[in-house]
Design a binder for these strands. Structure first.
Length: 924
RNA sequence: GCCGGGAUGGUGGAAUAGGUAGACACGCAAGACUUAAAAUCUUGUGGCCAUAUGGCCGUGCGGGUUCGAUUCCCGCUCCUGGUACCA
């Protein structure tokens, strides 16, 4: 018989798909569209491992399924090709990052093509391509030329803001701006110099230059954004990160905080991801209260979510970094307080983070006056107060806040209860209750008290209701080489945009990829990194954009990847619309996914696109972890003990390459030739075999647990790889890679092949009509596939295919009426073999153009059914009865069973309907 | 600490508007074919008791609701993801 030769089949069809442009997507108003997107990869030097394609396979299955269902599918792929690793490699080797990136992309593309994805490769984008980053720079320019208008609740042009300033100054405009922006009248504005005006406008622009405290990573020589820092270390490379004040570009993402929060409700994303974004944005509704300082005209502003507890304030705390704190220190307290501030400043961010239990602080000697009752309360400096959140000052209510409580206990300060309820140590009356001991608000509920307090504050102009966000503006510059240059030059120390006609501003050549000798970013090494204007030559910005710049809008570019006139033709972004299915890792929840939503909203505001939320439905695939294998060497020898016997010897464990281990059994010959020092290795075996130990770890080169999809494809073929990755378990689950079950999937494909290829050779298909039993087998699979597609439950579909093929094999069925639709059914999962069978069945067009078989319920309906009689849920007997039972029949059955009689008591059903062994409906 | 997700045979995992737990696959065991091995096919496979019919116990632990709970409720344990002096 003709053998299932996956190598030949897969090569043949991949070639044909590519030559015939089978998956080229074009606008087609007659078909509904479906935009299926994967998070595009960063092309690293290590190549693709088996974890990468997991999500791509899932989206490919959905894409192919949608094609069969008559959708016009857009399923593109590209590369997020700017980034740190290529640059680190460049520093070590002197090779231009563009060169290594190009090599890596070539390898990635080859690996991806081997898996047989239905990608439209004509639409490939690369963020490091000048034709692409021209538009990243263009978006930056639009952000620079925009401000956020709170009345319109959208971004508007800076030009319109200038017009308002000329007319009314800045008091009437409700525009988002930096804290502490001075107010001015129209006359004052008109009197300002150009430099002064530009300086002021920077406080409003959606991307702006400002002195900010940043995460500085000395080892990488660059700043990092909050989401790139994990527990005080850089996400890439794991280097320590410190806080530092620097002049940096930022994106005013906080202006969009509320819309980013509200937009989440409409999205079909998993609840945990939405929750992560909500927490990251961290909206708190509260109030700002101004305290006067006794004997001074200084004022202290605090932010609180619990103004209702204002009568319980017994002290104020200021952040050690605050300038106000230093000013308020009295002479008596000077020595201790200043020493404390110094000590607090010296502690690194990391020390402060790892040590949250130590309570420390110092009295300033000054007192503040509570605006509600005129009481004097001491002002303290404490490092539990963060300079970067709210106003950097806290009104402490020890009775109702745990940190204030601990602080007050530690320093012996007064604790005054103002919410009804019993207070035991460490436990505080909660957010609901009645306010007590609180003058004008006593007796009110917490909610009423808050409303009344805010009214009181606003009336007297000593505070106001305020919404505070945890999210900060996003730092937008990196002191690195391999990124998009900012289209900005400097004149008299102020930033100006280059002209649009000069885009793209192409990355210049440099002699080295390191910072300059005087610590400037690598672009400082470029010759002539200047911009020529009519007024003369000015220096260009030397920092580059962060990795997330290019990835925040690539999904729009796919709709029109070669456009030179705009980021994408609006007719095309309108046609393809929002992404219908986005698959990628949840690790991007507070990075890429938030920034992309921000940029999409901005582009929507300026009319560049018509979609505000770019990703309608998202699935987060779980990481495939590596499963490391270990061998156990008896210390000081070259003898290795099998896992089960290692306790009998003094051994040390050693990682062994998982590619020379099969089902935890070590291949001894391959082990000996793995490394020269192992050639003389000896073994102590169990049952004649060497068993390795195993552990689940992240896939990494150094742990020898990386599995390359090419190896799997070489051995089993791409269709097996695709099916097996899906078979491994639910898509969203984290799971270790193992090939233990891959033989089963491969066997299934061979069985499928053999349905069409009888044992006596050749290809044979019967044209006789199928029996009802055979059609039932097929339609069970159709139904299951459709259900699974709706729930994105890919693993169970593979099982249902196996059952279907096993049953057809048993029936000896090779009837066209059954096996032709079967090929279509399986084609999203195993496209190569399906395409081959399709062509053998005599079709000349691709199987992707086939119509999806229509599910017919009638084939599944049984007329008779084995009715289970149960007691306490245990099967007692099976009676062969009609599917639908009437009451007398039920009673006949029920007579046999006391429990069922009890169940029927008082229910008097007219009819009972049972489907597949389960009582699903009572007709009363 | 706070907010999520999870725990089912030797293994990966099925099954939840409550209804025969363990589908499918791996592994293992026995058998067929073979000089032999590989491949392939057949059968068995949650645990305990029993020659068997069969019985008892079983979805992390302890309770509850129900005729009936892997599924719902209450209280724990452990693993895992996020976040962390956010006022």
């Amino acid at each position: 018989m003709a053998e299932y030769n996956f190598r030949e089949i897969e090569q043949k069809w991949q070639g044909k798909w590519s030559d015939q442009g089978t998956y080229t997507a074009e606008i087609d108003p007659l078909r509904p569209k479906f935009y299926s997107l994967d998070m595009f990869p960063y092309p690293s030097g290590a190549g693709l491992h088996v974890g990468h394609p997991l999500g791509y396979i899932a989206s490919d299955i959905v894409s192919r399924f949608k094609l069969l269902k008559g959708f016009n599918v857009l399923h593109p792929m590209g590369y997020d090709s700017f980034g740190l690793p290529a640059e680190q490699y460049a520093i070590q080797t002197g090779q231009h990052p563009a060169v290594t990136t190009e090599q890596n992309i070539t390898r990635y593309t080859e690996q991806l093509k081997n898996i047989g994805f239905a990608f439209d490769w004509n639409r490939e984008v690369r963020t490091s391509d000048p034709a692409y980053y021209k538009w990243t720079q263009w978006i930056f320019m639009q952000l620079f030329n925009s401000y956020y208008d709170q009345d319109a609740d959208k971004a508007l042009s800076i030009a319109s803001l200038v017009a308002r300033f000329e007319k009314d100054g800045n008091s009437s405009a409700k525009a988002v701006c930096d804290e502490g922006t001075p107010s001015f009248t129209a006359e004052e504005w008109r009197g300002y110099t150009e430099t002064q005006k530009q300086q002021l406008l920077l406080h409003y622009r959606l991307t702006f230059l400002a002195e900010t405290t940043v995460n500085w990573c000395p080892a990488l020589g660059t700043v990092l954004s909050n989401d790139e820092v994990k527990e005080g270390f850089s996400e890439r490379g794991g280097h320590p990160v410190e806080r530092k004040k620097m002049m940096q570009w930022s994106m005013r993402i906080t202006a969009y905080a509320d819309r980013l929060l509200k937009g989440l409700d409409q999205l079909d994303w998993s609840e945990p991801i939405k929750e992560m974004q909500r927490n990251w944005i961290g909206k708190s509704i509260g109030a700002e209260v101004v305290f006067d300082v006794k004997g001074s005209n200084q004022k202290i502003q605090v932010f609180t979510t619990r103004v209702d507890t204002i009568y319980g304030v017994t002290f104020l705390s200021l952040a050690p970094e605050s300038d106000l704190a230093a000013e308020l220190i009295t002479d008596e307290q000077r020595q201790t307080a200043e020493a404390y501030i110094q000590q607090a400043k010296n502690r690194s961010e990391r020390e402060r983070m790892s040590d949250v239990k130590t309570i420390s602080g110092s009295f300033t000697g000054s007192y503040a006056i509570n605006p509600f009752n005129g009481e004097e309360v001491p002002i303290w400096v404490a490092d539990y107060v963060l300079a970067g959140y709210g106003t950097g000052a806290v009104m402490a209510v020890p009775a109702h806040d745990e940190r204030d409580y601990n602080f007050a206990k530690h320093f012996g300060l007064e604790i005054r209860q103002v919410i009804e309820g019993s207070m035991e140590n460490g436990s505080f009356p909660g957010k609901i209750g009645t306010v007590i001991n609180s003058g004008m608000i006593s007796g009110l509920s917490v909610k009423e008290a808050i409303t009344k307090c805010i009214a009181f504050l606003e009336e007297r102009k000593i505070g106001r209701g305020k919404v505070q966000y945890r999210m900060r503006d996003a730092i937008f510059t990196r002191q690195r080489y391999w990124g998009e240059p900012l289209p900005v030059y400097f004149k008299e120390g102020l930033p100006y945009l280059i002209e649009e006609k000069d885009l793209p501003l192409v990355l210049p050549e440099v002699d080295k990829y390191l910072p300059t000798e005087d610590g400037d970013a690598p672009l400082g090494r470029a010759k002539n990194w200047n911009y020529q204007t009519a007024e003369g030559e000015f220096p260009l910005e030397r920092s580059t954009m962060p990795g997330w710049a290019g990835s925040s809008w690539y999904f729009f570019r796919y709709t029109d990847p070669k456009n030179e006139k705009s980021l994408a033709d609006k007719a095309k972004t309108d046609y393809w619309g929002a992404v219908d299915l986005y698959i990628g890792g949840s690790e991007h929840a507070t990075g890429h996914l938030l920034y992309s939503r921000f940029w999409a909203k901005f582009l929507y505001d300026i009319g560049a696109v018509s979609i505000e939320e770019p990703f309608q439905k998202m699935i987060n695939q779980g990481m495939i972890q590596g499963r490391s294998n270990f061998v156990y060497r008896i210390k000081g020898t070259n003898t290795f003990v099998s896992h089960g016997l290692k306790e009998q010897h003094d051994t040390s464990a050693m990682h062994v390459d998982v590619n020379i281990v099969n089902n935890d059994q070590l291949n001894l010959d391959k082990f000996k030739s793995w490394r020269p020092d192992l050639a003389t290795a000896e073994f102590i075996l169990e049952d004649g075999k060497y068993y390795c130990g195993a552990e689940v770890e992240k896939m990494s080169k150094s742990k020898y647990n990386v599995v390359n999809p090419d190896d799997i494809i070489e051995r089993y073929g791409a269709d097996t790889l695709r099916l097996y990755e899906m078979f491994l378990g639910p898509l969203e689950q984290f799971k270790p890679w193992n090939t233990n079950g891959i033989d089963g999937v491969y066997k299934f494909l061979r069985k499928l092949w053999n349905l069409y290829h009888p044992a006596n050779g050749g290809f044979a298909i019967s044209e006789t009509p199928a029996s009802k039993e055979e059609l039932k087998v097929l339609h069970k699979a159709i139904k299951k596939l459709e259900e699974d597609m709706a729930n994105y439950s890919f693993n169970t579909s593979v099982s249902s295919f196996m059952i279907c093929v096993n049953e057809l094999t048993t029936l000896g069925c090779n009837k066209r009426e059954v096996v032709e639709p079967l090929a279509i059914l399986i084609s999203p999962y195993a496209p190569h073999i399906a395409e081959e069978l399709w062509s053998l069945l005599g079709h000349t067009t691709s199987i992707t153009r086939a119509a999806f078989p229509e599910f017919r319920e009638e084939y599944l309906v049984e007329s008779n059914f084995e009715y289970p009689v149960m007691i306490n849920g245990k099967l007692r007997a099976k009676l062969d009865l009609p599917l639908t039972l009437t009451v007398p029949e039920i009673e006949k059955v029920a007579l046999a069973d006391v429990q069922i009689q009890k169940w029927l008591e008082g229910k008097s059903p007219k009819k009972i309907i049972i489907v597949l062994g389960k009582i699903v409906n009572l007709v009363v």
